[in-house]
């Protein structure tokens, strides 16, 4: 078991023949991910990386049986790519693209709302199920199959957590990079819920950032759900000044509720093992599991 993606997922790459898409598709294939083809409008009928290229996502679904898509198209066209995937019946849409205009994402999120699909991202490192399937840009070699699930707004901070869990001998089930934009497809709470219901996942690492209220929402849900599994939490940006955007479009403190301190206090009150230093994630998870 795992969540969202596994060795049976049939993955297509939107923006397959571009430089980003090509590079990461190659890396995904080398990890053993089941990439069944890609989409580049106008290049349908050709092959790339020994896989078929389609003009539309609908064609990729029909001819290659694709059920999962990863998007590398440039920001101006990314919202369109998300909607095309949803319309074609793709079940898991993972959007890596950073820099999509907020207005485009408002429309894209509304468009997919009542369709049978889940969007991860945008502006995220993707989703990876250790030992099975990499649908993203994470370095595969730091992962080991294990028992901890990860939910994170940040890319390199996810790698940090993964690495510490590997070194602690715990390994990972699935790491979900939900993305650092103000509007994202899957919230912290939704991603945590997926992992909470995954029988293989024994503990969860939840990494957030300043800005927005998603970590508080997730923490309250975890408590209401009965703290079934230990959750170790970290919020980046304890030293960030108010009103300044810290790299990620969504990482900006607006009011008193979205500071790191406020989020950490709520998380602690909801029974989450909150670490103040990201260096302590692995060790704290060992303790939380009684190991």
């Amino acid at each position: 078991m795992s969540v969202l993606v596994n060795k049976n997922s049939k993955i297509i790459v939107q923006g397959f023949t571009g430089s980003e898409g090509s590079f990461h598709a190659q890396q995904m294939i080398e990890y053993g991910t089941n990439v069944v083809g890609g989409v580049t409008p106008g290049k349908g009928g050709s092959t790339h990386l020994d896989r078929p290229v389609f003009n539309t996502v609908a064609e990729a679904v029909e001819k290659a049986g694709a059920d999962t898509s990863i998007i590398f198209v440039p920001p101006a066209f990314a919202a369109d790519a998300i909607m095309e995937a949803a319309d074609a019946g793709i079940k898991v849409i993972i959007c890596i693209t950073e820099g999509i205009p907020t207005k485009d994402m408002i429309y894209a999120k509304e468009y997919i709302q009542n369709r049978d699909c889940r969007l991860i991202g945008p502006n995220c490192p993707g989703v990876m199920t250790a030992g099975e399937c990499k649908v993203g840009i994470m370095p595969g070699f730091i992962f080991t199959k294990g028992k901890i699930g990860i939910v994170s707004k940040s890319g390199t901070l996810t790698y940090e957590a993964v690495d510490q869990l590997t070194k602690a001998g715990l390994g990972q089930t699935t790491a979900i990079g939900i993305g650092g934009d103000p509007i994202i497809g899957t919230t912290t709470k939704e991603a945590v819920e997926l992992l909470m219901n995954d029988p293989e996942t024994e503990g969860i690492v939840m990494i957030g950032e300043i800005g927005g209220g998603m970590e508080a929402e997730a923490a309250e849900w975890i408590k209401a759900d009965g703290n079934r599994k230990p959750v170790v939490g970290f919020i980046a940006g304890q030293t960030a000044p108010k009103g300044r955007r810290m790299g990620h479009a969504g990482a900006i403190i607006g009011g008193a509720d979205d500071t790191a301190a406020a989020k950490m206090a709520i998380m602690e009150a909801c029974g989450i093992y909150v670490v103040h230093s990201p260096a302590d994630i692995g060790a704290t998870m060992l303790k939380a599991l009684g190991l």
Partner: peptide, 11 residues
């Protein structure tokens, strides 16, 4: 990475 950069400030 933005997240790790913020976390580094915290460290």
């Amino acid at each position: 990475g933005a997240g790790l950069a913020m976390a580094t400030m915290d460290i």
